[in-house]
Nucleic acid binder design. Structure first.
Lengths: 243, 243
DNA sequence: CGCAGCATTGACGCCTGTCAATTTGAGTGG
DNA sequence: CCACTCAAATTGACAGGCGTCAATGCTGCG
């Protein structure tokens, strides 16, 4: 039996390998500072002068943009191996806030130092460009989801994205803890916290996800493919009551 | 009298200078192919092998992403001086379609050739990185608008973005032609074409924009700041009848 | 033990999507 | 130059998804 639908978020099976090799390359070739992060720590804030790039070695971060009139918005989540700070290159100042959502370790390096290292070792430059490329593609995927999916489907898609990110990093994907409040998730997905809660409850009612006894932040996904089927519409929405 | 609100899209006044210098640098230092574009021409399609980067010398392009299950979405617009194709670096294949919306001229260069030129002339590398950085920031701004603004405000914001892009490129900003159908605009803004039409009509009723006699694609904006005030909520929505 | 933050659930209403009719405008051929 | 045709745009009626408001339950911590 072949896959009925391609999972929306399918990191290559060798993503874990890729990320490990990238981290190895960076730590071999670039002088790094290492910093322990705790939930709530600010890596950089909008307006700060740009001098450094960052690599998240472990943990979880959110990117928050704020408009001139005060609307703020989670525009990205970052996992182990993701790079941060590219937004500052063009203007010399960071355009957003970056905040830790969990404990972890952050690497930082001066941009000019990194470029010197790249000049000496071309594969390093390729890695940097690939990471920028990934950042661009990921944002576009987020826009696609925001514009084309219903609120419930966006929540399901978000869970698949999270699971896919863990899978690409070698962690278990059938059960994980969302290290965000419903309000943060809702902000990221362009909906209210109540809609997030209702969507999760609906998915749980349909047995497409489950909650553990440890609290409602820990999510179980028995079958990723079933969830993907819901996102692409091949499974009806969990609106009606189901037995 | 100081500005009541900062315009949401405010390219630096010297953006035109920056873009001209960038184009000059690229054409001086990198072997280019030049190609004439017409509306509908495809620059690259999703899945195509990545070998080249592109710079739009004149004209207008849209970026379209398609999900595995067939949802498609305009995720970006590009004007004179914008770079294209970064999405292909990470995977070696393009992740989206790029389609011309107007006649124009496109420059293309091999990525490896560009990198060789960058190795010889560091400012060129900085330019490339700055363009990638801008692409990341722009996508985030789009997400911010999608998630935090009402449909009518998104349309107003879109017009300001368009005007700002023209301003940064030295063109008149009080009157311009949208080279997209309502359906394309709606797709880009995450709403239906009817909502776009209603929003434009509402803004026109409020005299915040005007249509010329040449057709409903040409938009006049008498006061950018008034429109910006509407986006940030300091001016009430054009729902009710006015005078 | 009690408080404060987080999550769930229900009721209600509005924004915006859907469907449909009509008008406008552009392109084509007689 | 005008009639014809078709895509694009406008506008209205209606409904449903989701935001808003509010009450309640749950959990962790002082």
């Amino acid at each position: 039996m072949t896959l009925p639908t391609a999972p929306p978020h399918c990191p290559h099976a060798d993503d874990g390998q890729r990320i490990r090799a990238m981290l190895q390359l960076v730590s071999d070739r670039v002088p790094l500072q290492r910093r322990l992060l705790h939930a709530g720590d600010v890596v950089h804030a909008a307006g700060m002068p740009f001098t450094q790039l960052f690599v998240l070695n472990t943990g979880l971060l959110k990117i928050v943009c704020t408009s001139a009139d005060g609307r703020d918005q989670v525009v990205g989540l970052h996992f182990r191996g993701d790079w941060l700070g590219f937004d500052g290159i063009a203007t010399g100042r960071h355009a957003c806030d970056t905040v830790a959502l969990d404990t972890g370790e952050l690497w930082s390096m001066r941009y000019d130092t990194l470029m010197q290292a790249c000049a000496l070792h071309r594969p390093l430059l390729d890695v940097v460009h690939a990471e920028m490329s990934r950042a661009i593609t990921r944002s576009r995927t987020a826009i696609l989801s925001l514009c084309t999916l219903s609120a419930a489907a966006r929540v399901a898609d978000f869970l698949l994205y999270w699971a896919g990110s863990l899978e690409g990093r070698g962690q278990r994907t059938d059960s994980f803890t969302l290290r965000m409040t419903r309000a943060e998730i809702g902000n990221y997905l362009g909906m209210t916290l109540e809609s997030v809660s209702r969507a999760l409850s609906g998915l749980a009612r349909r047995r497409m996800i489950g909650f553990t006894e440890k609290g409602r932040r820990e999510i179980m996904i028995p079958d990723l493919r079933a969830l993907a089927g819901f996102v692409d519409g091949s499974v009806p929405p969990p609106g009606a009551t189901v037995q």
